[in-house]
Design a protein around this nucleic acid. Sequence first.
DNA 1: GGGTACTTTGAACGACGGTTCAGCTTTCGG
DNA 2: CCGAAAGCTGAACCGTCGTTCAAAGTACCC
Lengths: 198, 198
Amino acid sequence: MRKPQILEAAAAVITERGLSNTRIADVAERAGTSAPAVLYWFDTREQLLTAALIADEEDFAARVGARLESASSAAEKLMLLIDATVAEPRIDLWIELWARSLHDPEAARERLRRDRVWRSLFAEVVVAGRAAGEFDAGVDPDLAALSIASFMDGLSVQMTLRDPAITPELMGDLLVAHAESILGARISGALDAEAVGA
Amino acid sequence: MRKPQILEAAAAVITERGLSNTRIADVAERAGTSAPAVLYWFDTREQLLTAALIADEEDFAARVGARLESASSAAEKLMLLIDATVAEPRIDLWIELWARSLHDPEAARERLRRDRVWRSLFAEVVVAGRAAGEFDAGVDPDLAALSIASFMDGLSVQMTLRDPAITPELMGDLLVAHAESILGARISGALDAEAVGA
DNA sequence: GGGTACTTTGAACGACGGTTCAGCTTTCGG
DNA sequence: CCGAAAGCTGAACCGTCGTTCAAAGTACCC
């Protein structure tokens, strides 16, 4: 069962050469096999590419979701989410997925599904924080999630494209400020505070 | 001199079929000419595509810039910028340009240049509004511009990809709220106010 | 140790589409 | 008119993959 290796190889190649420049042979080589072998597992190149994008996305969300378990307060969870995004700007693949979604219904459907999962991570945190009295009681979780996640996307694009106007620290600061303004709460320092305090 | 027509046709085809699916023949057909004729004006397909993306972008910025002239207050200008973006979601081409920038230095350079122009529209408005006492005196124009423009990008992506969670009105509201929070000023209603008042 | 299903391979096919090219038409200055 | 430059055309060329296929391993079960 080489499917996982192939998907991983595909994600790597896509990151490196771009979606449209990714050839089956490239993926095969990186996975240590041959082009027809790849096509044995995936009926077509299109399928392979879409599957790779989605698999990578699922991977990331799962990893981040796991990290959230260890956090105690909602503020800390939020900081973790921001941190993870700033530290690991794998927006490369998102941009490719977006571009693909524009003209591939299958990709569009999947990207919507994955985005919902991603945003629900935020929404859950907001719900928890609201219940715990950490955040404003009047905040709409879904709206807050949409707002924060969208801001993240926009900033990530600039970061990934190496805009000199933005640095990881700056991106983090802007996100924190935005979240605090929306949620009516202080969250910056939640990470250190947890480590120091308790 | 058919260059303009060809560029226009190219932008249309790219929007419709996506960058990587755009064939020279498609562009030629839409421009009412032949593939070799297109290649007469542009040495290569790559050049054509990059040029088309940039030309379209320049076009949009110029159009919006012109509209700004007519506004009197900074708040109104800001509302116009938000309005223009919400109303005309041509992020399609931006996404394509982003994806291309990931692996094409030429595209990356151009996209950076164009983004600077776009953001400077915001920065100038902030400077003016600050001078006029409309906005907080402590606001950093470039930072505010980066923040607002990035948020716009993120939201536009969701809009363009037809995320059911977002509507034009909602997008406008979120942007206005964000801008107001950053600038410490009320800008919503600036458009109507101008029309009614004065 | 033979059968069966699964996996992989090398080689070749075939289409698509960018690019080239030789020549035709048009424009325009003198 | 003439000739040269500019603009364009149809047709062909050709490289690049995605994909197919027949045959060869490989693993596993009875």
